[in-house]
Design a protein around this nucleic acid. Structure first.
Lengths: 358, 358
DNA sequence: CAGCCCGATCTAAGCGCATTGAGAGCCTTA
DNA sequence: TAAGGCTCTCAATGCGCTTAGATCGGGCTG
């Protein structure tokens, strides 16, 4: 409210009858200042309502004391977001209760990043933005922090390269050769192998199809999928390619399979999001899951526990991924010449109903 | 990785053969610079990997372009957090699958804050910290932003007062007289009234007990609770006082009620968190919900949909609360002498199983 | 052709803090 | 008593950027 110019070190110094250096020391290096002096400085600061400017501090120290997380652009990413924004009134009365929109895995990772940052004394700067302003948005937040975490496939390589010359940058993705970034990811191959052992061994499925948006993450999962099939001498069907948000494509493919009577025993989806679309499509087509066909996912998002049947999946340790990322960045910040770190975390099979287990 | 000092406006200016002012203009006021000049500046910036320093910019402009959100201290707030941290290995294999810990309502509000901030071109600074360093932590983030959002009962009044003299501050709580803060809250009274109409009208309950940690929010809900009872001439039992995280207290009280055979028709809980504790306690005591006693909550968190029976509750428009908060702050930032805003948002009854509906 | 105006660019002065090197007292020690 | 060693404090400088005001060439007008 009050528009009074906010007090600075100068004001505090004057009121306490000392120099600004002493004020600064009183806060940052208490032992260098006599007790009585420090107290009078702190009193003056309190009386004036002094709040140190992080901008000035950051500029002077060459560090901001904050970490950055560049998030997906939910405004474009989430199918309903635009509609929700347009129809604000509707949102009031019928708030978004769709767990496919929140929390997604990004949110769980973010929670881990938050917790670990706070406990290490860093503030967290979260950025996001629409595609159009993407580069602007990311350099904007890069300029505010001492280290940056980014989600896979959100930022062009040349931009991350430029930023990583300034501060350490960690991407939550499979290591990419010589990209100058730290990496934290999960053991995709092992996860799929655990899953396939269950599907092939316990359920005895023989005909399985992989559903995926092709990218680096899903590629690793697909390789493990085909390897498991080949190891048992089973046939490998072509991938069912879906597209983000475009459930139309997936549903058309599934309808074709239905029409030709070539439905597999199980749809192995590259992630939970896909799996939920597939399940919805099957339900709409009157196909029973898991009686007529099984469905599995990968990630372990909350939505998978809310659908019926509940989703069998491979759970990623998302909070831990976030914490680990912070840990690596903090180390890199304190030791600027340390080598790039690439860490792979374990995953865990979560058997629920959609594979045919009860 | 590279420890090369990162380039500044000076470097860019030199390479482009212009003054630093021109570099600055090329970015912030493109129309003031001739096209050819601007291009050569941008080329130079790109070639050097220039990333503007937000600290310097913030200092020069007197604004940071970021909003702040001061979060609960989850490290102390969440019962399991400490254990999880200690046993990191366990967290890897058995990550936290408990929806009572995530997402809680705070997280949903945060999502709204994020989305609205991004779409308005603000970055979001998230702060948190342990109680010991609370004041330090909050002034730290206050020093980094142009406006601050805080959750109820997280920060002492004298601290918020001091900060609000510097930047606009909004608390997500019932307005408190003359505290110098903006407020966004929900219509607690209306929510409870909708709920009570359902419980008294549809279900015909006559004996209801209120379960609560007493504070400003729950007080408003309790008042509406007693008002509804009195309006129908029903008796008002004393509040069952619970304590955060201390399910022991609640369960002891409930056990007493059981022993004395004075179980009510329904436990009306001040929020979902309480309700989940009550349901768990009842289940442990072998009492069937909703057959022997009904339970209701308030908030509409995800966990309420995952328990069995699913939780009847009053849903707050959490994402909208976050968005609204940002909206108010952004206005306040652009018009420093505007009056304090207090906004109340509508809520909605969500009837599920725990009240006895199917 | 002098006088103006205007666009494009530059010069210079901070923004609020951290930090270095030096000064001012004061206490020890020889 | 002088010299040396402390402790506490200060003056001064720079961090990288924005921006008001000055400058400098044209192009126009009369």
């Amino acid at each position: 409210m009050s528009v009074a110019k906010s007090p600075t070190v100068y004001d505090v110094a004057e009121r306490a009858g000392v120099s600004i250096a002493t004020v600064s020391f009183a806060f940052s290096q208490p032992h260098r200042v006599k007790d009585s002096t420090r107290n009078s400085v702190l009193d003056a600061a309190r009386a004036l309502g002094y709040v140190p400017s992080a901008s000035a501090r950051g500029l002077a120290k060459g560090r901001t004391g904050a970490l950055g997380l560049f998030s997906f652009d939910f405004l474009n990413f989430l199918p309903d977001a635009e509609g929700m924004k347009k129809d604000r009134a509707a949102a009031v009365v019928a708030p978004n209760d769709d767990c496919r929109l929140f929390p997604v895995w990004v949110d769980e990772v973010q929670r881990g990043v938050e917790l670990e940052s706070f406990s290490r004394g860093y503030a967290l700067m979260i950025g996001g933005g629409n595609k159009a302003s993407s580069e602007r948005a990311v350099t904007d937040i890069a300029g505010r922090v001492d280290g940056l975490i980014i989600f896979p496939r959100t930022i062009p390589a040349d931009v991350t390269r430029r930023i990583s010359a300034r501060i350490p940058v960690l991407e939550l993705s499979e290591p990419s050769h010589n990209d100058g970034l730290h990496h934290v990811t999960v053991d995709n191959a092992d996860g799929v192998q655990q899953l396939m052992e269950h599907l092939l061994g316990v359920h005895g499925f023989r005909k399985l199809m992989f559903v995926s948006i092709p990218n680096v993450e899903t590629e690793a999962r697909y390789q493990a999928f085909t390897a498991a099939l080949r190891a048992r001498g089973l046939e490998v069907s072509p991938v069912v390619e879906s597209r983000p948000g475009a459930s139309g494509v997936t549903s058309e493919l599934i309808r074709n399979l239905l029409a030709s009577g070539t439905l597999p025993d199980c749809f192995v989806c590259a992630n939970d999001e896909e799996a939920l679309v597939v399940m919805e499509t099957l339900k709409a087509a009157g196909v029973s899951v898991p009686d007529q066909v099984a469905v599995t996912g990968f990630d372990g998002v909350v939505a998978g526990r809310l659908v019926s049947p509940t989703l069998t999946t491979v759970r990623q340790p998302m909070e831990l991924m976030g914490r680990t990322a912070v840990e690596i960045l903090v180390d890199a910040i304190s030791q600027p010449v340390s080598p790039l770190v690439e860490k792979q975390l374990p995953v865990r099979l979560v058997v629920r109903e959609s594979c045919g287990c009860s």
